[in-house]
Design a binder for these strands. Structure first.
Length: 510
RNA sequence: GGCGGCGUAGCUCAGCUGGUAGAGCAAGGGAUUCAUAAGCCCUGGGUCGACGGUUCGAGUCCGUCCGCCGCCA
């Protein structure tokens, strides 16, 4: 069974996750689940990024030591991921032993390669950015991102010789179109790399909460050098070579578009230095805007995922984000658009389809799948449509076009509703055409099962409920293109409403 | 300033290598009743941002401009 290693960015421990954070995990989860359905041995990694001056400060402000502070933050993330049914196989924290060991060994290798050196750095430092600023970062002498005056700092830092890998990284991006996706991100990174990469400071001596450099314990690793290594320290680097061999290189790093540069320029440079293979692909997704504006931690303009999950369920949020926001660009969440999508797609089209199907099975078919003893060309047309849908979804998922895959599935949801209309089982029933009614119902039960498998990656809980109501195991069966009628005899449950229609309701305080 | 993206029906967007515009939602109408007042059928004349150019013919190619946006400097 081929393996598929997928990761998301590890999140900063200094603030709660919001819907943009959730979007990334939901998208990655849909991909991971799809790959599992396809039969891949998937390893799905997520985690939390802890070492940094900002985390240390937050902790100190709360009167805690940084480790304890991070322990307290962990459930803010993991509880949300559980609630969203994110199917990650592992959750790494950069304070864990395995990661410290990995980062330390990684640094040693780069050091041994001659790619680490010490130099004095004088510059303007922004605490918010955790980075030195260039003149162009300043607006009226203040950081353009944080609107705060920078500090003048002079530090002896350790540097990573990234410049040495400019050509190698550039060639790799040029020769491997799938390495940076989508296209727009690739153009951006190429732009940066073609201008030449600069050596980068990778240590700090101004705070303690970090991994000490093996060559100079008075310095700790700078956040990015530390954080990126999680992708390998989580899978056995360096202490479990067999596991590492099996899982690395990753098939896909899912990240936000803002950190493309670190993943597509710095990270490959680091790996080349350490003599390790590069990940196969990096996907920089777009932003979820909220009511037309960028979400922002500093202004507090945020959509709290719990505000959607608690009243409407995880799948409502998952569906909206995956359907409404194409995975390669930005999109907007408003309560109106959420309500429209939810009612039109989930309640009216899908939920109602299941409900009316189950109801008719009880009224016309004894709540049981009967033999399809009176077939009709209409049945074959439905089956052909669904199999075409399968192809469309597969093709879309191959391109990671998640919203397109959902569009294809909904074509089939609509098509199945049409199948009901064109057969009008209620009329057949009045006419006493029992064999035909039962055949129609058998096709419908099969169609719903077929759809439940395709829906699973996107709305796993609801897909499971659909299957339960159909009298099936909630876990999706294997992915299979062929539309094969269900064997007679299976009982279905009384339908319960999957997605009750909702009124637009904006939580107060938003 | 350099590179790139976007600007198409009220909304969200499709429109590949050029041949007189499409989908979903929303809206209006209709026939039904198994169903979550849902579903199904019918109905869309929008200067395809503006102006030029190439062409027998251009959202679709070229140029200029305008308006948003991203990356870099």
């Amino acid at each position: 069974m081929p393996r598929y290693y997928i990761t998301t960015a590890i999140d900063y421990a200094n603030s709660n996750p919001h819907s943009g954070t959730a979007y990334e995990k939901i998208g990655a989860d849909a991909i991971a689940r799809w790959k599992r359905l396809q039969g891949y041995d998937v390893h799905f990694l997520m985690g939390m990024d802890e070492h940094s001056m900002n985390v240390e400060k937050k902790a100190v402000a709360a009167g805690m030591d940084p480790e304890a502070y991070c322990d307290g933050m962990e459930p803010k993330f993991t509880d949300l991921w559980k609630a969203l049914h994110i199917s990650n196989d592992d959750f790494i924290r950069t304070t864990q032993k395995r990661h410290i060991a990995g980062a330390t060994e990684f640094f040693r290798r780069c050091h041994a390669k001659g790619d680490i050196y010490k130099a004095k750095y004088v510059g303007l430092y922004c605490v918010g950015c955790e980075a030195y600023l260039k003149d162009s970062d300043l607006v009226d002498g203040r950081c353009r991102n944080h609107n705060t005056p920078p500090q003048k700092l002079e530090e002896e830092n350790w540097f990573f010789r990234l410049s040495k890998y400019t050509d190698a990284v550039r060639r790799h991006i040029e020769e491997n179109p799938e390495f940076v996706q989508p296209e727009i991100r690739r153009n951006e990174v190429l732009n940066v790399v073609r201008d030449g990469l600069e050596d980068i400071s990778i240590s700090r001596s101004t705070f303690k909460f970090g991994i000490p450099l093996p060559c100079d314990p008075s310095h700790v690793m700078y956040v990015w050098f530390d954080a990126l290594i999680n992708y390998i320290s989580a899978v056995g680097f360096p202490d479990d070579p067999a596991r590492f061999e099996r899982l690395w290189p990753a098939d896909l790093h899912v990240i936000g578009k803002d950190i493309t540069r670190f993943h597509c320029a710095l990270w490959p440079g680091m790996l080349l230095s350490a003599g390790l293979p590069l990940p196969k692909s990096v996907w920089g997704h777009g932003w979820v805007h909220y009511k037309g504006q960028k979400m922002s931690k500093s202004t507090g303009h945020l959509l709290d995922p719990w505000d959607v999950i608690e009243p409407h369920g995880a799948d409502a949020l998952r569906y909206f984000l995956l359907r409404e926001i194409a995975w390669d660009r930005d999109g907007d969440f408003t309560w109106d658009s959420f309500t429209l999508r939810y009612n039109a797609d989930l309640a009216n089209d899908l939920g109602n389809l299941l409900h009316r199907t189950l109801n008719m099975m009880h009224r016309f078919s004894a709540g049981t799948v009967q033999a399809a003893s009176e077939p009709d060309p209409k049945d074959g047309a439905l089956a052909a449509h669904l199999e075409g849908c399968f192809d469309g979804v597969s093709a879309a998922m191959d391109r990671l076009a998640l919203s397109e895959a959902l569009e294809r599935i909904w074509d089939s949801v609509r098509r199945t509703n049409q199948y009901i209309e064109e057969n009008a089982p209620w009329t057949l029933n009045k006419q006493g055409r029992t064999a035909r009614v039962q055949t129609v119902m058998a096709n419908l039960a099969t169609a719903m099962e077929y759809l439940s498998v395709l829906l699973h990656p996107f709305i796993p809980q609801s897909a499971g409920r659909i299957r339960e109501q159909l009298g099936l195991d909630p876990a999706p069966g294997a992915l299979s293109r062929a539309f094969v009628l269900r064997a007679p005899g299976g009982k279905v449950r009384e339908g319960t409403v999957l997605f009750p229609r909702i009124e637009t309701r904006e939580p107060k305080g938003n």
